[in-house]
């Protein structure tokens, strides 16, 4: 998917393919299979979370009450919007709207970075409130420490995925700015879009698991 050397323009069509539309179809299918494995990856985490929550419902509620809903909701809105801009970039690229596509890609990267920045602020606040499991952990309830174990592991893994996504979209911008034809035809654009949306989808579930259980009474 990358250009082999900086001097020669990148080609979208690669061995062993002879037909670009088949290659695109294959790249999209490959990405869907990868997303399938990602679903099971996070699905395993969700299952583990659900089991532990069913064993310690009150502890999880107390833990969730400490999670910062404002940061979480801002991040959800940022991600939903980034998924929109990414989708628009994917739709604009093959329609030869290079400037539009590049603009939407840049917006996606900006929103992704904003998400990471907000997440960083939230992490910082969590640490100052001693919400990292271990000695001196803030909450006494049985299971609250476990809730935050899942909080850190799940959001951490999601953040890794976000970072990879930001890098992948940035690459589209860098190559696409120099070679508009590549942006128009490369299977990488649609595949990256799918990946970005999946990372968004994962967050939507995480949001419900982390921020909502402790609301209300």
């Amino acid at each position: 998917m990358t250009a082999s050397t900086a001097s020669s323009p990148p080609v979208a069509l690669h061995e062993p393919w002879e037909d670009l539309s088949r290659q695109r179809q294959a790249a999209t299918m490959g990405m869907w299979i990868f997303l399938l494995s990602e679903m099971l990856l996070f699905g395993g985490l969700f299952a583990a979370y659900t089991v532990c929550r069913s064993l310690n419902p009150m502890g999880f509620r107390a833990g969730s009450h400490e999670a910062d809903l404002v940061y979480g909701t801002i991040n959800t809105v940022l991600l939903i919007t980034s998924s929109l801009t990414m989708t628009l970039a994917v739709r604009a690229a093959p329609a030869r709207l290079h400037k539009v596509a590049l603009g939407f890609l840049a917006a996606t990267v900006a929103l992704g970075l904003a998400f990471l920045a907000v997440k960083g602020m939230e992490y910082h606040e969590d640490l100052t409130k001693s919400l990292f499991p271990g000695p001196g952990f803030k909450l006494p309830q049985q299971g609250a420490e476990q809730f935050f174990s899942f909080y850190w592991v799940m959001t951490g893994l999601h953040m890794l995925h976000m970072t990879a996504g930001v890098i992948a979209v940035s690459r589209l911008i860098v190559v696409g700015r120099r070679y508009p034809e590549w942006l128009e035809t490369s299977p990488a654009v649609e595949a990256t879009g799918l990946y970005w949306s999946l990372v968004d989808v994962i967050w939507m579930i995480l949001y419900v698991l982390i921020y909502l259980p402790g609301r209300g009474g």
């Binding site: 494995s37 099971l40 395993g44 583990a48 420490e145 850190w152 893994l157």
Partner: peptide, 23 residues
């Protein structure tokens, strides 16, 4: 379909050992 679930199981073991989170 199966391998990612092993990855998660091992990730949780590594997190518990390395970060001390009591999963």
């Amino acid at each position: 379909l199966a391998t990612p679930v092993l990855s998660v199981a091992l990730l949780l073991v590594m997190a518990e050992r390395w970060l001390g989170v009591p999963i």
